[in-house]
Design a protein around this nucleic acid. Structure first.
Length: 374
DNA sequence: CAACCGTGGAA
DNA sequence: TTTCCAAGGTT
């Protein structure tokens, strides 16, 4: 139906965008690489949180070649604090794939984009429409919410929603239209307390007419967060270096560095678990097991951290070795283990909770202080 | 398809 | 303090 509804919606949403669009760093030029990076960072992440990361990223990796040439550890270091670290790993891997399979040119076709790691339906549509002017929809949480209200549908079916939006995307300004819908959802048709009194499409909104705006879309039932306890060992050498280990690529915080830690077993004393974490992290090749076993773990305190799907309490302990361990080389970091001098810590990508543990370790200052923490 | 995957700001 | 949840993707 090439209806009055469609025409009015297109016109008013684009008028809104022309008048109210925020001046965001990635909107200054439609370079495909810049659009791609911004869309990856914006996945499940607020605009305000992304801006400083985007600016820094573009100074560090100005082009796709700069990114493809970089080590994954440098990429993760740049992503540190932004969360969902698989995004950074996927972006890095995809950059190399683009160079190998697409002659270094980011594809314009949504289906081709969709094949790259980290790019799903939304991101493929966003890159194609914004960077290349391809008339294809880009349906994110904002767009879903906007149409849930416009149609007064508590739970729009993805396939039908896609058809609906696709029929509305204008041939001349597809990227602006997609961004306009998102901008509208983010600044006017917000999840809580939407600004219906200054809504440019209020007269088109069935939920507004029915008084159901606050109930659209229907929220998903929330699940309780599992909790666990992790004993963390801040293992310090006489030189002041401390041990970091790299997490496996798959799973939580994949590829990030951390102080050695282990989940506390039922009935196990937390200090014993911390010592066990240190011993397991040192591996079989070192002769320091006995030394670790003889050291008394000094409690530094606890850090409670809420992830997307679980709450973890890190119980941190300082363990000071009497003798300097052998392998100090940075080359050892390839083995996923590194003795790091305090001044070199900025070279390692650490998750938020680990940075808090590091701060506690520095406050404690070392030998002789016995802060039992919380 | 449901679970997994971070972080921090707002209410 | 707790709850919500944000320009989603992968398995």
């Amino acid at each position: 139906m090439a209806s009055a509804f469609a025409d009015t919606l297109r016109r008013r949403i684009l008028e809104f965008y022309d008048a109210r669009a925020r001046d965001l760093p990635w909107r200054r030029e439609a370079d495909p690489y810049r659009v791609w990076v911004s869309e990856m960072m914006l996945q499940q992440t607020r605009v305000e949180a992304v801006i400083p990361y985007y600016e820094r990223w573009m100074r560090r990796f100005p082009t796709l070649d700069d990114l493809a040439d970089a080590d994954v550890d440098d990429v993760l270091r740049e992503w540190q604090g932004l969360g969902y670290y698989a995004r950074a790993r996927n972006l890095h891997r995809a950059a190399r794939l683009v160079r190998e399979r697409h002659d270094g040119r980011i594809p314009a076709d949504p289906e081709t984009l969709r094949q790259l790691p980290g790019i799903g339906d939304y991101t493929a549509g966003a890159i194609a429409s914004i960077a290349y002017g391809v008339p294809t929809p880009a349906i994110d949480g904002n767009v879903r919410r906007v149409f849930s209200r416009l149609l007064d549908d508590p739970d729009p079916a993805p396939a039908e929603l896609r058809r609906t939006v696709a029929a509305l995307v204008p041939e001349d300004r597809p990227g602006d239209f997609n961004q306009a819908l998102m901008e509208f959802g983010a600044t006017v048709c917000t999840p809580r307390s939407p600004a219906c009194d200054r809504c440019p499409v209020q007269t088109l909104c069935r939920a507004y007419a029915n008084g159901t705006v606050a109930e659209r879309p229907r929220p998903k039932p929330k699940k309780a967060l599992p909790e666990d306890d992790v004993a963390t060992a801040v293992l310090v050498a006489p030189s002041g270096r401390f041990l970091l280990t790299r997490r496996p690529e798959a799973g939580l915080l994949g590829g990030m560095w951390e102080f050695p830690g282990t989940t506390v077993r039922p009935g196990e004393r937390i200090a014993d678990a911390a010592r066990r974490a240190a011993i397991e992290a040192l591996g079989d090749t070192t002769g320091t097991h006995a030394a670790v076993a003889a050291v008394a773990p000094v409690p530094l305190g606890a850090v409670v951290h809420t992830f997307s799907h679980r709450r973890t309490t890190y119980h941190a302990f300082r363990l000071e070795l009497d003798n300097e361990p052998a392998n100090h080389d940075a080359a050892a970091s390839s083995a996923g283990r590194a003795w790091v001098a305090p001044g070199d810590i900025t070279g390692y990508a650490l998750p938020a909770a680990q940075l808090r543990i590091l701060a506690m370790a520095r406050e404690d200052g070392g030998s002789g202080r016995y802060d039992t923490g919380a």
